[in-house]
């Protein structure tokens, strides 16, 4: 049934992604591909992988943005993005067949590949680009939150997290129940003022992003700056050593 569950359960599994820590190494995307190409939605087909125009199915992608502040200060932010397992998931309600559904128990949004007709409407409805079309299989695929890993009792308990989370070398990805205000991820979101993407789209995504921390104390930056200027101008504000060096070099 593609209507959303009438009562969403208390558990809302999701990811918390720390944009302050992410180094943009793409390891999460690679391990996502590695796990999922033999998992619930296997395979993650690649077409023409070694040819001139390679393309393929990915559930997780890392974009890199440049953010320039009003006073010209710029920073680079690596930005991993996968399905946000929205509470009000438009990809679910537009599905004409019932193939797309949101689980009542944990809120994971999945596709039943047996019922999907490959009409792609879910990919049009998703603002986040979380839906992938597998040209080869003729069905839509998406992040499963590694549903075949997080409940897998054959794995040691610490491994029962999505592949992207277990592989992140920087610890920028966290997994947990965002429906429980006392869970580690919820406390993290509260402490770091985690936010949702494109709230104006009204999808109520579960995943949260933690903003990059502000740079070093601006006052300290201010104090450090004149040292650079000194070497060039050697005005009276420079230190004794700097003035001496400047005099020696300009001689």
């Amino acid at each position: 049934m593609t209507s959303l569950p009438s009562q969403s359960g208390p558990v809302k599994l999701g990811l918390v992604i720390d944009l302050d820590i992410c180094v943009g190494c793409h390891a999460c995307a690679v391990n996502c591909k590695e796990w999922n190409t033999s998992g619930h939605s296997a395979p993650l087909t690649d077409t023409d992988p070694y040819g001139a125009d390679p393309t393929g199915v990915w559930f997780n992608r890392i974009h890199t943005f440049e953010v320039v502040s009003d006073d010209g200060d710029s920073r680079t932010v690596h930005f991993p993005k996968s399905c946000l397992h929205c509470e009000d998931a438009p990809c679910v309600t537009v599905c004409p067949t019932g193939a797309s559904y949101k689980r009542e128990d944990d809120g994971i949004v999945l596709v039943n590949a047996e019922a999907c007709i490959g009409c792609k409407l879910c990919s049009w409805a998703c603002p986040y680009g979380a839906r992938e079309y597998d040209e080869d299989a003729g069905v839509m695929k998406k992040c499963t939150l590694c549903v075949d890993k997080i409940y897998n009792e054959n794995l040691p308990e610490r491994s029962r997290v999505p592949a992207c989370v277990s592989t992140c070398p920087a610890g920028a990805r966290h997994f947990g129940d965002l429906g429980d205000p006392e869970s580690e991820v919820s406390l993290l979101v509260a402490a770091r003022e985690g936010y949702e993407l494109m709230p104006e789209q009204g999808c109520a995504p579960v995943n949260r992003y933690l903003p990059p921390r502000s740079k070093a104390n601006p006052a300290e930056v201010e104090r450090a700056a004149p040292l650079v200027a000194t070497a060039e101008t050697a005005d009276g504000s420079a230190g004794l050593l700097a003035r001496w060096v400047d005099r020696m070099l300009t001689r």
Binding site: L19, T55, V57, W58, R61, H63, V67, V68, S74
Partner: peptide
């Protein structure tokens, strides 16, 4: 991106060198 509080946001590098779906 939710990064508007830091300034103007511009894509620096796309996730892939090639096109995608």
């Amino acid at each position: 991106t939710g990064l508007g509080h830091l300034g103007k946001v511009r894509l620096l590098e796309a996730p892939h060198s090639e096109s995608n779906y």
